[in-house]
């Protein structure tokens, strides 16, 4: 009886006329407060991806570490004999690793993020929540991967290369932030586009393998031909890779204009991505 009365009181309070949900043409405009309301869902989605990923794999977490190490070994053997790819004072494998790790995280975010909305369609088709939580959860998982990688490789770094340690390391989180912003922006675009145009599941991996060679991963950014520098600088990875190498090895940070272009490009993709995602999210269910 008491329970019923309590419920009644609760409903009366909820009856405030202003306190309603309006269902109109715009349901999915990006609103931080709504996303915060659904933080539990974000958390559940992240946990789900993490557990699903590692539940039925034999070596689990080790895969995260193994992948860049194997890649580092192969790349360094193949490109070792080419002169002038890297500064002399840094071991070439580590030089590659310093850029390959952020690249790997970004590539994984983009790869999983692009198909994220489509693969969550059963959820999206049945319940309301801010759709942007889906790509965001991929970014958070990417950040988690990043964290594991950084922790392990920094330990290795402290043991192998103690002479490089400096205050510059404190700038690393800044570059990680830029990477996550770039990654979010890109997958806001690709995940929303992929709902209508499944071509993106095919285009994106192909595109990534091209950008891999256009990004200074196996070489330094000075290696770029002068006439193309202006265009290539729009690559969001430029400022991240050079920033990482600068923080880890004290290599030269390079011309500021190029870095600003790269940074601008990340922010531009992020803002337009938010806008585009917000615009298309309302029609996901109808278009999937």
């Amino acid at each position: 009886m008491n329970e019923i009365r309590k419920n009644r009181i609760k409903y009366c309070q909820g009856q405030n006329d202003k306190n309603f949900i309006l269902i109109g043409l715009q349901q999915q405009s990006i609103d931080i407060s709504v996303i915060y309301q659904f933080r539990e869902l974000l958390r559940a989605l992240v946990l789900r991806q993490l557990t699903v990923r590692y539940k039925q794999t034999a070596v689990g977490l080790i895969w995260i570490l193994l992948q860049p190490l194997i890649m580092m070994a192969i790349l360094s053997v193949v490109f070792k004999s080419l002169p002038g790819l890297s500064p002399k004072n840094i071991p070439y494998p580590l030089f590659i690793l310093s850029a390959y790790v952020p690249w790997l995280v970004l590539a994984r975010i983009i790869g999983e993020g692009t198909s994220s909305i489509v693969s969550e369609q059963s959820l999206i088709a049945r319940v309301f929540f801010p759709r942007i939580i889906v790509p965001l959860s991929v970014v958070v998982v990417g950040a988690f991967d990043f964290f594991i990688l950084i922790v392990f490789f920094l330990i290795g770094y402290f043991i192998v290369l103690p002479e490089f340690i400096s205050i510059r390391l404190l700038a690393l989180p800044l570059f990680i932030m830029i990477l996550l912003i770039a990654g979010s922006g890109i997958i806001f675009w690709t995940s929303a586009l992929n709902v209508r145009y499944r071509d993106f599941t095919i285009i994106v991996p192909f595109f990534l393998s091209i950008v891999f060679f256009l990004t200074p991963i196996i070489y330094t950014s000075n290696f770029w031909p002068k006439e193309y520098v202006a265009i290539l600088s729009f690559n969001p990875m430029l400022v991240i890779v050079d920033g990482f190498r600068w923080a880890l090895f004290g290599t030269e940070f390079g011309p500021l204009l190029g870095k600003l272009t790269s940074l601008f490009s990340s922010i531009f993709i992020f803002i337009t991505g938010l806008w585009f995602f917000g615009k298309s999210a309302d029609d996901f269910v109808d278009n999937i």
Binding site: I21, I23, G24, L25, Q26, Q27, I124, A125, R126, V127, F128, D282, D283, V285, D286
Partner: peptide, 9 residues
């Protein structure tokens, strides 16, 4: 579906 905000009118 519209009432549960899955699709928009």
């Amino acid at each position: 579906k519209i009432l549960s905000r899955v699709i928009r009118p």
